[in-house]
């Protein structure tokens, strides 16, 4: 289960640092008992908007893809980044393939527990598209803005 992290536009292997994980439910029940936790695990059926304001103390938030088809964590990540300004690591866990990596990065993920991908292949997957039509958590300039910035045709 290689852990890859995003550095700029490249993936690189990251050391598997030992994490003290706690689930959102356990932490909400008794924050004091989990004061030393470093990573918060949020299942994808939990509305992050109800808790997000208190999450900045965590260095890592782990969101889950039980199967690649279950895309709820894309919305959770965008809410964490764009609505609640969470700046720590957002890590994708579960059924994570390189073919989804660009979507995940655009929604705010920056660490990935890939099942079986090397850093070069995952990095190449991120470079498959030069532009994006719509704004998202990655702050990529949408195509319409590039059009506006384009020098007028002579």
């Amino acid at each position: 289960m290689p852990l890859l992290k995003l550095f700029g536009s490249d993936f690189a292997p990251a050391l598997e640092e030992p994490l003290q994980e706690v689930s959102l439910e356990d932490w909400c029940d008794n924050p004091q008992a989990h004061a030393d936790a470093t990573a918060l695990v949020i299942e994808n059926d939990i509305g992050v908007e109800h808790f997000a304001e208190d999450l900045s103390s965590f260095r890592i938030i782990i969101l889950n893809f039980p199967t690649f088809k279950d895309g709820r964590a894309y919305s959770q990540a965008r809410l964490l980044r764009e609505r609640f300004g969470y700046t720590g690591e957002i890590r994708a866990r579960g059924d994570v393939l390189r073919d989804q990596a660009l979507f995940m990065v655009r929604c705010g993920f920056d660490a990935f527990e890939f099942a079986d991908e090397d850093a070069a292949a995952a990095t190449a997957a991120l470079a498959e598209f030069s532009f994006a039509y719509q704004p998202a958590a990655d702050r990529a300039e949408p195509v319409w803005r590039r059009r506006l910035d384009r020098p007028a045709a002579a």
Binding site: F68, K69, D70, G71, Y74, S75, R78, Q100, L102, F103, M104, R106, C107, F129, A132, Y133, Q134, A136, V143, W144
Partner: peptide, 13 residues
């Protein structure tokens, strides 16, 4: 069409 094409959040609805 443009907004929905490769929309990163709404590709696994």
């Amino acid at each position: 069409r443009q907004w929905s094409t490769f929309h990163p959040e709404f590709t696994f609805l």
